[in-house]
């Protein structure tokens, strides 16, 4: 049976539609980094084990290394470049500002993923989603305290050990948002 191993797809990233001839094997992560020069999204493990490649797909956080670009066609992707501040003079997202103020990073390599994840964590909490440390999983109101932030941010490894400052940054941004 004849089978095409590449396709022309439309990838919508940060509101811009890109038409790409793409090898079916290409992940969203590699498409962003190697084809669209959107290198803010990082490759740390390429297997969904570190979170450095976190982006938002239809507003929800996802590890872009495990998404095939062809399967994401037509969906809205937001990368760190679409969160804020990518252009000179453009305002930072409150989460970005909080990471900057609290020194919630060191080498910076996990940072775009952490920030994309944190933006989504605030939305997930606002939507009432519970976490693995939520005492009563059926509760309608869940306080986004430090244990909740730690658990919800645990899909993003940071080897420099900036977690303490990351938690402070997310708590700060959550407080500013609420």
């Amino acid at each position: 049976m004849e089978r095409a191993t590449a396709a022309t797809i439309t990838l919508t990233v940060n509101g811009v539609a890109h038409s790409l001839d793409i090898d079916h094997r290409t992940t969203l992560l590699d498409a962003l980094r190697e084809r669209l020069d959107l290198t803010g999204t990082k490759k740390g493990c390429d297997h969904g084990q570190c979170g450095a490649c976190t982006v938002l797909v239809e507003g929800r956080r996802a590890d872009s290394c495990l998404l095939l670009a062809v399967a994401v066609a037509g969906k809205a992707v937001t990368t760190i470049e679409g969160i804020g501040g990518a252009a000179a003079g453009e305002a930072l997202h409150p989460v970005q500002q909080a990471f900057l103020d609290h020194d919630g990073y060191q080498c910076g390599y996990c940072t775009p993923g952490q920030i994309c994840s944190a933006v989504a964590v605030l939305d997930e909490h606002a939507a009432g989603w519970p976490s693995a440390v939520t005492g009563d999983v059926g509760a309608e109101e869940i306080v986004l305290d430090e244990p909740e932030i730690r658990e919800r941010m645990s899909g993003n490894l940071c080897r420099c050990g900036a977690y303490v400052s990351i938690v402070a940054a997310v708590a700060d941004a959550a407080g500013a948002q609420s």
């Binding site: 969904g48 979170g51 976190t54 797909v57 929800r60 956080r61 996802a62 590890d63 495990l66 998404l67 994840s117 989504a120 964590v121 997930e124 519970p130 976490s131 693995a132 939520t134 999983v137 059926g138 919800r152 645990s154 899909g155 993003n156």
Partner: peptide, 19 residues
């Protein structure tokens, strides 16, 4: 079915559970 919700939340990460 709280055990089911708790089990799902105990797995993987927020990013992976979304997908």
């Amino acid at each position: 079915f709280p055990a089911v919700a708790q089990a799902v939340l105990a797995g993987a990460s927020g990013q992976l559970r979304n997908v």
